[in-house]
Amino acid sequence: MRDDVLSGGFADTPVEAARAFRAALEAMARPGSIHRVEGARAPAPVSEAAAVLLLTLCDRETPLYLAPGHDVAPVRDWVAFHIGAPLVGASEAMFALGGWQALAPLDAYRIGTPDYPDRAVTLIAELVNLAPEGARLSGPGIRETARLSLPEVAAFQRNHHLFPLGWDAFFTCGDRLAALPRTSVVEAG
């Protein structure tokens, strides 16, 4: 097995995962806010922030979908070695990782049920650019409005209209992450 498959996990899991989770929690609680994380390295094309999220949130109990581009042998092996999440198709996934285009079609994912709206996928979308500019966000977690360089607007608007159903998304870029829950109202910037 390649070196980059066996390495790249947290050196001190309880503490590093705790710090990473707090960043993820703040990101989900304050849509549009951007947070830096560290401590994990997965084979290309997985970003450091996405690797941190996988290590922090996924395990044997979380079916994971790797979208085309991320569904490559070194990444699969890294996930198997460090996380053990079963790799599944989009429709069964609790987490999905990939570039924004590669994650499509979005209607393939679980959006929860009226009884259990929480049983919905969390997307981890890798972006080439992550900045507090572009689309305008409002809703829970946002004092007035926030801005985030979302890859598009329409998909998030459609998702918001499903509330309380819908998926939720993290965005990753290098060592930074942001999040957008289904509650956020998104308008073109």
């Binding site: 989770f21 993820a24 929690l25 922090t56 949130l57 609790m94 929480d118 919905a120 969390t122 289904r182």
Partner: peptide, 16 residues
């Protein structure tokens, strides 16, 4: 593992 399970629940709780 327990913390991850709780953390996942917390993120969904914030989303809904």
């Amino acid at each position: 593992q327990t913390k991850r399970m709780i953390r996942r629940a917390l993120l969904k709780a914030l989303a809904i």
